[in-house]
Design a binder for these strands. Structure first.
Lengths: 202, 202
DNA sequence: GTGGAACGGAATGCTTCGTTCCGTTCCAAT
DNA sequence: ATTGGAACGGAACGAAGCATTCCGTTCCAC
Protein backbone atom coordinates (compact mmCIF):
# COMPACT_ATOMS: atom_id res chain seq x y z
CA UNK A 1 0.00 0.00 0.00
CA UNK A 2 2.53 2.48 -1.14
CA UNK A 3 1.70 6.12 -1.19
CA UNK A 4 3.82 8.50 -3.18
CA UNK A 5 5.40 11.82 -2.28
CA UNK A 6 4.09 13.75 0.66
CA UNK A 7 1.76 11.00 1.75
CA UNK A 8 4.64 8.57 1.85
CA UNK A 9 6.71 11.02 3.85
CA UNK A 10 3.85 11.48 6.27
CA UNK A 11 3.63 7.76 6.96
CA UNK A 12 7.36 7.52 7.42
CA UNK A 13 7.29 10.46 9.80
CA UNK A 14 4.61 8.88 11.93
CA UNK A 15 6.91 6.02 12.74
CA UNK A 16 10.10 8.04 12.74
CA UNK A 17 8.70 10.35 15.38
CA UNK A 18 7.58 7.57 17.66
CA UNK A 19 10.83 5.68 17.28
CA UNK A 20 12.88 8.79 17.88
CA UNK A 21 10.75 9.73 20.87
CA UNK A 22 11.28 6.33 22.42
CA UNK A 23 15.03 6.52 21.97
CA UNK A 24 15.37 10.07 23.15
CA UNK A 25 13.01 9.98 26.10
CA UNK A 26 14.26 6.62 27.34
CA UNK A 27 17.75 7.99 27.39
CA UNK A 28 16.58 11.16 29.12
CA UNK A 29 12.95 11.72 30.07
CA UNK A 30 13.50 15.45 30.30
CA UNK A 31 15.00 15.81 26.87
CA UNK A 32 13.62 18.71 24.85
CA UNK A 33 11.03 18.02 22.19
CA UNK A 34 13.39 19.51 19.65
CA UNK A 35 15.77 16.61 20.25
CA UNK A 36 13.08 14.18 19.19
CA UNK A 37 12.37 16.14 16.04
CA UNK A 38 16.04 16.26 15.21
CA UNK A 39 16.52 12.54 15.75
CA UNK A 40 13.48 11.83 13.62
CA UNK A 41 14.80 14.18 10.95
CA UNK A 42 11.55 16.07 11.07
CA UNK A 43 10.71 19.69 11.64
CA UNK A 44 9.25 20.61 15.00
CA UNK A 45 6.14 21.68 13.18
CA UNK A 46 5.58 18.21 11.77
CA UNK A 47 5.82 16.81 15.27
CA UNK A 48 3.41 19.27 16.83
CA UNK A 49 0.96 18.62 14.05
CA UNK A 50 0.58 15.08 15.39
CA UNK A 51 0.96 15.59 19.11
CA UNK A 52 -0.50 18.79 20.50
CA UNK A 53 1.88 18.79 23.44
CA UNK A 54 4.94 17.13 24.83
CA UNK A 55 2.84 15.48 27.48
CA UNK A 56 0.65 13.90 24.84
CA UNK A 57 3.71 12.47 23.13
CA UNK A 58 5.04 11.09 26.38
CA UNK A 59 1.67 9.56 27.13
CA UNK A 60 1.55 7.88 23.76
CA UNK A 61 5.02 6.40 24.11
CA UNK A 62 4.26 5.09 27.55
CA UNK A 63 0.90 3.67 26.62
CA UNK A 64 2.47 1.87 23.69
CA UNK A 65 4.98 0.37 26.08
CA UNK A 66 2.22 -0.75 28.39
CA UNK A 67 0.52 -2.50 25.49
CA UNK A 68 3.77 -4.19 24.60
CA UNK A 69 4.03 -5.42 28.16
CA UNK A 70 0.57 -6.91 27.91
CA UNK A 71 1.43 -8.47 24.56
CA UNK A 72 4.49 -10.12 26.07
CA UNK A 73 2.43 -11.52 28.89
CA UNK A 74 -0.14 -12.89 26.47
CA UNK A 75 2.59 -14.33 24.31
CA UNK A 76 4.09 -16.22 27.25
CA UNK A 77 0.72 -17.39 28.58
CA UNK A 78 0.14 -20.40 26.30
CA UNK A 79 3.53 -21.92 27.09
CA UNK A 80 2.76 -25.15 28.95
CA UNK A 81 5.85 -25.27 31.16
CA UNK A 82 5.31 -22.89 34.07
CA UNK A 83 8.90 -21.93 34.58
CA UNK A 84 9.55 -21.43 30.88
CA UNK A 85 6.48 -19.24 30.64
CA UNK A 86 7.66 -17.12 33.53
CA UNK A 87 11.21 -16.81 32.25
CA UNK A 88 10.36 -16.05 28.65
CA UNK A 89 7.89 -13.42 29.81
CA UNK A 90 10.61 -11.65 31.75
CA UNK A 91 13.09 -11.99 28.93
CA UNK A 92 10.56 -10.56 26.53
CA UNK A 93 9.81 -7.60 28.74
CA UNK A 94 13.47 -6.85 29.25
CA UNK A 95 14.23 -7.17 25.57
CA UNK A 96 11.40 -4.81 24.67
CA UNK A 97 12.78 -2.28 27.14
CA UNK A 98 9.29 -1.80 28.51
CA UNK A 99 10.36 -1.40 32.11
CA UNK A 100 12.32 1.75 31.29
CA UNK A 101 9.16 3.33 30.06
CA UNK A 102 7.46 2.78 33.35
CA UNK A 103 10.41 3.68 35.50
CA UNK A 104 11.66 6.73 33.70
CA UNK A 105 8.56 8.27 32.24
CA UNK A 106 6.28 7.93 35.25
CA UNK A 107 5.34 11.31 36.59
CA UNK A 108 6.08 13.18 33.38
CA UNK A 109 2.43 13.09 32.40
CA UNK A 110 -0.98 12.35 33.88
CA UNK A 111 -2.30 8.95 32.82
CA UNK A 112 -5.57 8.47 31.02
CA UNK A 113 -8.33 6.21 32.24
CA UNK A 114 -7.56 3.74 29.50
CA UNK A 115 -3.98 3.57 30.66
CA UNK A 116 -5.12 2.88 34.15
CA UNK A 117 -7.33 0.06 32.93
CA UNK A 118 -4.49 -1.38 30.87
CA UNK A 119 -2.19 -1.13 33.85
CA UNK A 120 -4.61 -3.17 35.91
CA UNK A 121 -4.82 -5.77 33.17
CA UNK A 122 -1.05 -5.84 32.84
CA UNK A 123 -0.69 -6.33 36.55
CA UNK A 124 -3.13 -9.23 36.52
CA UNK A 125 -1.45 -10.97 33.64
CA UNK A 126 1.98 -10.53 35.15
CA UNK A 127 0.73 -11.71 38.52
CA UNK A 128 -0.60 -14.84 36.93
CA UNK A 129 2.78 -15.57 35.35
CA UNK A 130 4.55 -14.99 38.64
CA UNK A 131 2.09 -17.30 40.32
CA UNK A 132 2.95 -20.02 37.85
CA UNK A 133 6.62 -19.50 38.44
CA UNK A 134 6.33 -19.38 42.21
CA UNK A 135 6.75 -23.12 42.85
CA UNK A 136 10.20 -22.83 41.34
CA UNK A 137 11.12 -19.70 43.26
CA UNK A 138 12.60 -19.25 46.71
CA UNK A 139 10.14 -18.49 49.49
CA UNK A 140 8.71 -15.04 50.05
CA UNK A 141 9.11 -13.83 46.48
CA UNK A 142 6.13 -11.67 45.56
CA UNK A 143 5.00 -10.08 42.32
CA UNK A 144 6.44 -6.77 43.41
CA UNK A 145 9.84 -8.42 43.79
CA UNK A 146 9.66 -9.31 40.13
CA UNK A 147 8.79 -5.74 39.23
CA UNK A 148 11.82 -4.63 41.13
CA UNK A 149 14.00 -7.04 39.19
CA UNK A 150 12.74 -5.55 35.97
CA UNK A 151 13.60 -2.09 37.20
CA UNK A 152 17.06 -3.31 38.04
CA UNK A 153 17.56 -4.63 34.54
CA UNK A 154 16.41 -1.30 33.18
CA UNK A 155 19.26 0.34 35.06
CA UNK A 156 21.77 -1.48 32.88
CA UNK A 157 22.66 0.85 30.06
CA UNK A 158 25.58 1.50 27.76
CA UNK A 159 25.70 3.80 24.75
CA UNK A 160 25.13 1.01 22.24
CA UNK A 161 21.55 -0.25 22.22
CA UNK A 162 22.32 -3.77 21.01
CA UNK A 163 25.05 -4.24 23.59
CA UNK A 164 22.70 -2.89 26.25
CA UNK A 165 20.20 -5.59 25.38
CA UNK A 166 22.88 -8.22 25.60
CA UNK A 167 24.10 -7.04 28.98
CA UNK A 168 20.56 -6.89 30.29
CA UNK A 169 19.95 -10.47 29.28
CA UNK A 170 23.15 -11.39 31.07
CA UNK A 171 21.98 -9.68 34.23
CA UNK A 172 18.53 -11.15 33.98
CA UNK A 173 20.01 -14.62 33.78
CA UNK A 174 21.91 -14.02 36.99
CA UNK A 175 18.77 -12.66 38.63
CA UNK A 176 16.65 -15.60 37.54
CA UNK A 177 19.18 -18.02 39.00
CA UNK A 178 19.17 -15.96 42.17
CA UNK A 179 15.41 -16.21 42.32
CA UNK A 180 15.63 -19.99 42.33
CA UNK A 181 18.30 -20.20 45.02
CA UNK A 182 17.50 -21.13 48.59
CA UNK A 183 17.87 -19.13 51.73
CA UNK A 184 16.05 -16.39 53.57
CA UNK A 185 15.78 -12.84 52.28
CA UNK A 186 16.07 -9.78 54.49
CA UNK A 187 12.98 -7.66 55.10
CA UNK A 188 9.50 -8.08 53.69
CA UNK A 189 8.95 -8.04 49.92
CA UNK A 190 8.02 -4.69 48.43
CA UNK A 191 4.36 -3.84 48.23
CA UNK A 192 2.63 -2.63 45.11
CA UNK A 193 2.14 0.74 46.75
CA UNK A 194 5.84 1.07 47.40
CA UNK A 195 6.57 0.69 43.72
CA UNK A 196 3.98 3.14 42.47
CA UNK A 197 5.31 6.22 44.18
CA UNK A 198 6.48 7.72 40.92
CA UNK A 199 2.98 8.06 39.58
CA UNK A 200 0.84 11.12 40.33
CA UNK A 201 -1.10 10.65 43.51
CA UNK A 202 -4.76 10.15 42.72
CA UNK B 1 35.00 20.91 71.62
CA UNK B 2 31.92 23.05 71.64
CA UNK B 3 31.96 26.38 69.98
CA UNK B 4 29.31 28.91 70.83
CA UNK B 5 27.12 31.08 68.66
CA UNK B 6 28.11 31.71 65.09
CA UNK B 7 31.06 29.35 65.22
CA UNK B 8 28.81 26.56 66.34
CA UNK B 9 26.36 27.33 63.60
CA UNK B 10 29.16 27.33 61.05
CA UNK B 11 30.26 23.83 62.02
CA UNK B 12 26.70 22.57 61.93
CA UNK B 13 26.22 24.11 58.51
CA UNK B 14 29.31 22.43 57.14
CA UNK B 15 27.77 19.06 57.78
CA UNK B 16 24.20 20.08 57.09
CA UNK B 17 25.15 21.27 53.62
CA UNK B 18 27.00 18.10 52.73
CA UNK B 19 24.26 15.89 54.08
CA UNK B 20 21.57 17.84 52.30
CA UNK B 21 23.57 17.87 49.08
CA UNK B 22 23.94 14.10 49.19
CA UNK B 23 20.24 13.61 49.73
CA UNK B 24 19.13 16.11 47.14
CA UNK B 25 21.59 15.27 44.41
CA UNK B 26 21.24 11.53 44.81
CA UNK B 27 17.52 11.90 44.39
CA UNK B 28 18.00 14.17 41.40
CA UNK B 29 21.45 15.08 40.08
CA UNK B 30 20.05 18.11 38.30
CA UNK B 31 18.34 19.56 41.31
CA UNK B 32 18.91 23.28 41.82
CA UNK B 33 21.43 24.46 44.33
CA UNK B 34 18.66 26.32 46.12
CA UNK B 35 17.07 22.97 46.96
CA UNK B 36 20.20 21.94 48.81
CA UNK B 37 20.27 25.18 50.74
CA UNK B 38 16.64 24.79 51.66
CA UNK B 39 17.05 21.21 52.80
CA UNK B 40 20.08 22.21 54.85
CA UNK B 41 18.11 25.12 56.31
CA UNK B 42 20.82 27.46 55.22
CA UNK B 43 20.84 30.58 53.09
CA UNK B 44 22.20 30.25 49.61
CA UNK B 45 24.87 32.70 50.58
CA UNK B 46 26.15 30.40 53.31
CA UNK B 47 26.44 27.61 50.79
CA UNK B 48 28.28 29.65 48.19
CA UNK B 49 30.68 30.84 50.84
CA UNK B 50 31.93 27.24 51.14
CA UNK B 51 31.63 26.01 47.58
CA UNK B 52 32.36 28.54 44.87
CA UNK B 53 30.20 26.73 42.36
CA UNK B 54 27.69 23.95 41.99
CA UNK B 55 30.25 21.86 40.23
CA UNK B 56 32.62 22.14 43.15
CA UNK B 57 29.89 20.92 45.48
CA UNK B 58 29.09 18.00 43.22
CA UNK B 59 32.75 17.11 43.02
CA UNK B 60 33.10 17.14 46.77
CA UNK B 61 30.10 14.89 47.28
CA UNK B 62 31.33 12.44 44.70
CA UNK B 63 34.88 12.38 45.96
CA UNK B 64 33.63 11.70 49.47
CA UNK B 65 31.69 8.79 48.06
CA UNK B 66 34.75 7.47 46.33
CA UNK B 67 36.66 7.58 49.58
CA UNK B 68 33.84 5.72 51.29
CA UNK B 69 34.08 3.07 48.60
CA UNK B 70 37.78 2.68 49.30
CA UNK B 71 37.13 2.54 53.01
CA UNK B 72 34.63 -0.27 52.53
CA UNK B 73 37.12 -2.20 50.47
CA UNK B 74 39.79 -1.76 53.11
CA UNK B 75 37.38 -2.76 55.81
CA UNK B 76 36.54 -6.01 54.06
CA UNK B 77 40.16 -6.81 53.16
CA UNK B 78 41.30 -8.32 56.47
CA UNK B 79 38.39 -10.78 56.59
CA UNK B 80 40.01 -14.22 56.27
CA UNK B 81 37.17 -16.00 54.47
CA UNK B 82 37.31 -15.04 50.81
CA UNK B 83 33.61 -15.25 50.13
CA UNK B 84 32.66 -13.40 53.28
CA UNK B 85 35.11 -10.65 52.39
CA UNK B 86 33.62 -10.33 48.94
CA UNK B 87 30.05 -10.34 50.17
CA UNK B 88 30.49 -7.93 53.05
CA UNK B 89 32.32 -5.56 50.74
CA UNK B 90 29.38 -5.47 48.38
CA UNK B 91 26.90 -5.16 51.20
CA UNK B 92 28.90 -2.28 52.63
CA UNK B 93 29.04 -0.46 49.33
CA UNK B 94 25.33 -0.90 48.75
CA UNK B 95 24.47 0.20 52.24
CA UNK B 96 26.60 3.33 51.92
CA UNK B 97 24.81 4.18 48.68
CA UNK B 98 28.14 4.85 47.05
CA UNK B 99 27.19 3.39 43.70
CA UNK B 100 24.48 6.03 43.20
CA UNK B 101 27.11 8.70 43.44
CA UNK B 102 29.06 7.20 40.61
CA UNK B 103 26.10 6.36 38.46
CA UNK B 104 24.07 9.51 38.85
CA UNK B 105 26.66 12.20 39.36
CA UNK B 106 29.09 11.14 36.65
CA UNK B 107 29.28 13.74 33.96
CA UNK B 108 27.97 16.57 36.08
CA UNK B 109 31.48 17.77 36.81
CA UNK B 110 35.04 17.30 35.60
CA UNK B 111 37.07 15.09 37.94
CA UNK B 112 40.25 16.21 39.60
CA UNK B 113 43.54 14.38 39.31
CA UNK B 114 43.24 13.22 42.88
CA UNK B 115 39.85 11.73 42.09
CA UNK B 116 41.31 9.89 39.17
CA UNK B 117 44.06 8.49 41.37
CA UNK B 118 41.55 7.45 43.99
CA UNK B 119 39.42 5.85 41.32
CA UNK B 120 42.36 3.74 40.20
CA UNK B 121 43.02 2.71 43.77
CA UNK B 122 39.37 1.89 44.30
CA UNK B 123 39.34 -0.21 41.19
CA UNK B 124 42.39 -2.14 42.31
CA UNK B 125 41.01 -2.83 45.75
CA UNK B 126 37.66 -3.91 44.36
CA UNK B 127 39.33 -6.08 41.76
CA UNK B 128 41.28 -7.82 44.48
CA UNK B 129 38.08 -8.58 46.40
CA UNK B 130 36.41 -9.90 43.26
CA UNK B 131 39.45 -12.07 42.60
CA UNK B 132 39.11 -13.57 46.04
CA UNK B 133 35.44 -14.25 45.46
CA UNK B 134 35.91 -15.68 42.00
CA UNK B 135 36.43 -19.32 43.05
CA UNK B 136 32.92 -19.24 44.47
CA UNK B 137 31.40 -17.55 41.44
CA UNK B 138 30.05 -18.96 38.21
CA UNK B 139 32.40 -18.91 35.26
CA UNK B 140 33.00 -15.79 33.20
CA UNK B 141 32.16 -13.31 35.92
CA UNK B 142 34.47 -10.35 35.69
CA UNK B 143 35.02 -7.29 37.86
CA UNK B 144 32.88 -5.22 35.53
CA UNK B 145 30.00 -7.62 36.08
CA UNK B 146 30.19 -6.79 39.74
CA UNK B 147 30.15 -3.09 39.01
CA UNK B 148 27.04 -3.67 36.96
CA UNK B 149 25.40 -5.45 39.86
CA UNK B 150 26.10 -2.47 42.07
CA UNK B 151 24.49 -0.19 39.54
CA UNK B 152 21.48 -2.43 39.48
CA UNK B 153 21.11 -2.21 43.22
CA UNK B 154 21.37 1.56 42.97
CA UNK B 155 18.33 1.50 40.74
CA UNK B 156 16.20 0.27 43.60
CA UNK B 157 14.64 3.29 45.21
CA UNK B 158 11.51 4.14 47.18
CA UNK B 159 10.70 7.40 48.93
CA UNK B 160 11.76 6.17 52.35
CA UNK B 161 15.55 5.94 52.71
CA UNK B 162 15.56 3.19 55.33
CA UNK B 163 13.18 1.04 53.34
CA UNK B 164 15.28 1.64 50.26
CA UNK B 165 18.31 0.25 52.05
CA UNK B 166 16.32 -2.79 53.13
CA UNK B 167 15.06 -3.49 49.64
CA UNK B 168 18.53 -3.08 48.20
CA UNK B 169 19.90 -5.62 50.60
CA UNK B 170 17.12 -7.95 49.55
CA UNK B 171 18.01 -7.53 45.90
CA UNK B 172 21.71 -7.86 46.57
CA UNK B 173 21.08 -11.17 48.31
CA UNK B 174 19.27 -12.46 45.26
CA UNK B 175 22.08 -11.25 43.03
CA UNK B 176 24.77 -12.85 45.16
CA UNK B 177 22.97 -16.17 45.00
CA UNK B 178 22.65 -15.73 41.26
CA UNK B 179 26.37 -15.12 41.04
CA UNK B 180 27.04 -18.47 42.65
CA UNK B 181 24.66 -20.43 40.46
CA UNK B 182 25.84 -22.59 37.59
CA UNK B 183 25.18 -22.28 33.91
CA UNK B 184 26.40 -20.21 30.99
CA UNK B 185 25.76 -16.51 30.62
CA UNK B 186 24.87 -14.84 27.34
CA UNK B 187 27.39 -12.53 25.73
CA UNK B 188 30.79 -11.47 26.98
CA UNK B 189 31.10 -9.69 30.33
CA UNK B 190 31.14 -5.91 30.19
CA UNK B 191 34.48 -4.23 29.82
CA UNK B 192 35.70 -1.44 32.03
CA UNK B 193 35.46 0.94 29.10
CA UNK B 194 31.83 0.07 28.57
CA UNK B 195 31.00 1.13 32.09
CA UNK B 196 32.85 4.43 32.06
CA UNK B 197 30.92 6.09 29.28
CA UNK B 198 29.26 8.50 31.66
CA UNK B 199 32.51 10.19 32.51
CA UNK B 200 33.88 13.06 30.45
CA UNK B 201 36.04 11.81 27.62
CA UNK B 202 39.69 12.32 28.47
C1' DG C 1 -2.48 26.12 -12.77
C1' DT C 2 -4.20 26.19 -8.14
C1' DG C 3 -5.95 25.05 -3.32
C1' DG C 4 -4.73 23.04 0.57
C1' DA C 5 -2.24 19.53 3.26
C1' DA C 6 2.26 18.83 5.32
C1' DC C 7 6.84 20.62 6.00
C1' DG C 8 10.87 22.93 8.29
C1' DG C 9 12.59 25.80 11.39
C1' DA C 10 13.04 30.74 13.08
C1' DA C 11 10.87 33.57 16.60
C1' DT C 12 8.43 34.16 20.94
C1' DG C 13 7.61 34.31 25.68
C1' DC C 14 8.16 32.12 29.79
C1' DT C 15 10.33 29.39 33.27
C1' DT C 16 14.19 27.78 35.62
C1' DC C 17 18.46 28.22 37.57
C1' DG C 18 23.49 29.64 38.93
C1' DT C 19 25.58 33.28 40.92
C1' DT C 20 26.10 37.85 42.91
C1' DC C 21 25.10 41.45 46.19
C1' DC C 22 23.88 43.64 50.13
C1' DG C 23 21.63 44.64 54.45
C1' DT C 24 21.49 42.15 58.94
C1' DT C 25 23.13 39.41 62.96
C1' DC C 26 26.40 37.91 66.18
C1' DC C 27 30.79 37.52 68.59
C1' DA C 28 35.09 38.99 70.43
C1' DA C 29 38.26 42.30 71.40
C1' DT C 30 38.82 46.93 72.84
C1' DA D 1 29.34 49.96 75.50
C1' DT D 2 31.32 50.10 71.00
C1' DT D 3 32.80 48.28 66.84
C1' DG D 4 35.17 45.54 63.04
C1' DG D 5 34.58 41.80 60.56
C1' DA D 6 33.02 37.01 59.90
C1' DA D 7 28.91 34.45 58.61
C1' DC D 8 24.04 34.74 57.47
C1' DG D 9 19.74 34.81 54.66
C1' DG D 10 17.59 35.61 50.72
C1' DA D 11 16.17 39.08 47.03
C1' DA D 12 17.65 40.28 42.47
C1' DC D 13 20.05 39.66 38.08
C1' DG D 14 21.15 37.67 33.84
C1' DA D 15 21.82 33.70 31.04
C1' DA D 16 19.92 29.49 29.33
C1' DG D 17 16.84 26.24 27.95
C1' DC D 18 12.45 24.97 26.24
C1' DA D 19 7.52 24.30 24.89
C1' DT D 20 4.80 26.17 21.62
C1' DT D 21 3.40 29.22 17.83
C1' DC D 22 3.74 31.17 13.29
C1' DC D 23 4.64 31.64 8.70
C1' DG D 24 6.83 31.16 4.30
C1' DT D 25 7.78 27.06 1.31
C1' DT D 26 7.05 22.53 -1.03
C1' DC D 27 4.42 19.07 -3.12
C1' DC D 28 0.19 16.60 -4.79
C1' DA D 29 -4.27 15.94 -6.60
C1' DC D 30 -7.48 17.73 -9.34
Amino acid sequence: MKRPGRGEQAVRNNEAILTAAREIFLADPRAPVAAVAERAKVGIGALYRRYPSKEELLRTICHDGLRTFIAEAERAGPEPDDWVAFATFLRGVVRADVHSLTVHLAGTFTPTEQMHADAVLASELAGRLVERGRPHLRAEIGPADVTLLLEMCAAVRVPDAARTAELRERCLTILLDGLRADGPLPGPPPTAAELNWRWPKA
